[in-house]
Nucleic acid binder design. Structure first.
Lengths: 156, 156
DNA sequence: GACGTTATATCGTATTGCGATACATTGGGA
DNA sequence: TCCCAATGTATCGCAATACGATATAACGTC
């Protein structure tokens, strides 16, 4: 009976689009917040990942590249900018002098703290919606390419 | 009893950092997927938001700017690129000829569909982790702005 | 039919991440 | 010890793209 696969697709697209929209909203908030604090987004992210490093890990260039989803040389440049602003320190690890270990300065810490508080609050607001969107996506994903099933369209 | 505010902060930063890391991971996956499909990320996002538009809304430049978190003129340029690739159509609305309405072509639809399936699958995998991170943040957020900042300096 | 408003378009600029490539440090074997 | 491959970081030039400032077009109203 065909069961309107178009409707399934539309539903799926709307769900994905909505999720992305929410992500954008959060990211946009984050960028705005950083900009108000006069701190480029990426610098904020670098600070966050340095400060939020697990206790047993050393925050090296490479580690941060992985965490930020960047190539290492992008992090080199990014960290250079942060250093110029006096937000972080760069020191060669004494054990392996190839490694550069990053460290947030007091100034950087202050900047980061405000932003983190704001972010925590904003996420506290957005979390329910994000979770809802994710749950919806999960329920989509369940029907693993089961072509048939008569999903009744909910929309409109 | 002071209760080691440093530890709280550290915990908070780690939680936020972890959340951002997961977002990056997803965004990175998304960019990769789009690139494999030979489609710039932003073009993919534009297609998604056009295709996933609620039934009662007209996908105009302005609407999409809001959805994508961009300024309208950025969307103008983006949509121009998409049009050049034959992924979308741009037509002036007959009612209000100022408005440009965007529409995904068959070609665009095909490209989008593959990507959407991949994304739905990936999100199905990531959703539990994301939800966990969000839940953790929610539990942080409860303790509303406790001012006392006896941050001990780490820098040398 | 002039005006303020809304919607889209154009241009020049600045940021920034990347590929290619180079340099520095390390550990290990001849 | 010296050489070398592996690993980690740095530099350079480039390309993509989002933005601000500004311009054009269509609308509704008086």
């Amino acid at each position: 009976m065909r069961s309107v696969p178009e409707a399934i697709d539309k539903q799926k697209l709307q769900t994905l689009a909505e999720f992305r929209y929410m992500l954008r909203r959060f990211l946009h908030f984050s960028e705005e917040a950083a900009r108000k604090a006069d701190l480029p987004t990426q610098q904020h992210q670098l600070l966050l990942q340095i400060a939020g490093v697990p206790d047993e890990v050393a925050p090296t260039i490479s580690y941060l590249a992985e965490r930020l989803g960047l190539r290492h040389h992008s992090v080199v440049e990014l960290s250079k900018r942060c250093q110029e602003q006096g937000l972080i320190l760069r020191t060669h690890a004494s054990l392996d002098r190839r490694c550069v270990v990053l460290q947030v300065t007091l100034k950087g810490e202050r900047r980061l703290k405000e932003l983190s508080d704001d972010h925590a609050r904003e996420l506290y607001e957005l979390a329910p919606q994000l979770i809802r969107a994710l749950t919806q996506i999960q329920s989509l994903g369940c029907k693993k390419a089961t072509a048939g099933l008569s999903t009744r369209k909910i929309e409109k």
